[in-house]
Computed example of a mutant assay.
Amino acid sequence: MGEKTISLSDKIARLRGLFIEQLPERMAGARRLFDILRADPTVGEAATSLHRYLHNTKGTAASFGFLELSALSSKAEELAKAILENPDALPSNENWQQLGGCLSDMERMLEQSALQVGSSDGQSEQKLMFEMPSTKNAAYDTNNERLIYICDDETLMAEQLAAQLQCFGYQTVLFNNTAELRDAVLAKQPDAVIMDIIFPEGKSEGTNVLANLREKHGIRFPAIFVSARRDFDARLRAIQAGGEAYFPKPVSALELVASLDLLTRHSEPESFRVLIVDDEPEIAQYHALILENAGMVTRTTSVLETVLDMVGEFKPDLVLMDMYMPRCSGHDMAKLIRQVPDYVGLPIVF
């Protein structure tokens, strides 16, 4: 029996549970920092740590749906920030009471197990996160047969060519006149068209029809011309009509297939790479889950000393970084990264 697949919602629920388990210890730490500051507001390290804790709690609680806890943390964060930014100005008794009151409300909420997942409109939600459909590789299903239209008034040759292409996995549809081809293209665009040039309507009818589809209808697709004509004018008209290959008759099936493979092959794009830097491992993992579900490749770290090495090894397209972290801010970390010339243009989002 195979291993049970864990849904995105289940993974996020586990992170949410871990966050709840850690809250009592976090609240005790916040209360100790508050008591230190209450006794001596000039202890800058305590103010910095308290502000960072409240900032992290605000963001993490909101991510996991605890909006009331996030709102209390946000209010307390602003009060702690005022202390941090004005170390020489003693906070008023009212400020201390407000900050202490926010912490008490958070502690009371935790003691009463009153944490509730909510939505932005205040209504209770029964589910933390809806399952998101994965978009990864959705547009690149290489198992689908590639559709090729073949238009040639030499029916026998066209049928032989179609049979050969089908042996290589192509789906083919035959047309012996350009009017039918035009209608078919307007109804359903193929992956490529193999087109003769000479038809009863004229010696350049094939190129004229494809040029008209491009210019009048804006329809573009790989076109390969096959023709008994070998002159310069025929080849030039084929290029001007959007032709990307030209084969004089009789056509080598192997050479034609090689050209079709090249023109219709869909290369899967490289996934966008995001490095997530956050001193809260749970929130870093939360963001990673969301981004990976959208088809991106992620790496996470909560250790600032490893960031430069990870940038060099992982080569991210973007760095997603927390603003408030121990020892340095997100801005300081960004400056440190950009001291390396190769990383000057690396996008960093806070």
Results as ranks from 00 to 15, higher is better:
188 K>I: 00
214 R>L: 07
137 N>M: 10
99 L>D: 09
250 P>R: 12
160 Q>P: 01
273 R>M: 06
286 Y>W: 15
227 S>Q: 09
9 S>H: 06
129 M>P: 01
148 I>W: 10
137 N>T: 09
15 L>I: 00
348 I>G: 02
33 L>N: 11
155 T>M: 08
19 F>L: 00
335 K>N: 14
101 G>S: 09
234 A>C: 15
214 R>P: 04
108 R>A: 11
34 F>L: 13
250 P>S: 09
223 A>K: 01
318 L>G: 06
263 L>N: 08
200 P>E: 15
259 S>E: 09
169 G>H: 09
240 Q>S: 12
44 G>F: 10
232 F>E: 10
274 V>C: 14
112 Q>S: 15
141 D>R: 10
71 A>F: 00
159 E>Q: 15
4 K>L: 07
254 L>G: 04
280 E>P: 09
90 L>A: 12
38 R>W: 06
288 A>N: 13
195 M>Y: 05
276 I>D: 14
116 Q>P: 13
84 L>I: 00
261 D>H: 13
121 D>W: 10
119 S>H: 15
208 N>G: 11
277 V>I: 15
122 G>Y: 03
198 I>G: 03
178 T>S: 08
282 E>A: 15
28 A>L: 07
77 E>H: 02
98 Q>T: 01
168 F>W: 04
96 W>E: 06
173 V>L: 09
18 L>Y: 00
126 Q>L: 14
222 P>L: 10
249 K>M: 10
314 F>M: 09
100 G>M: 11
133 P>W: 00
115 L>E: 02
95 N>K: 13
257 V>F: 05
240 Q>K: 14
72 L>I: 03
38 R>C: 03
192 A>I: 02
162 A>E: 04
135 T>P: 00
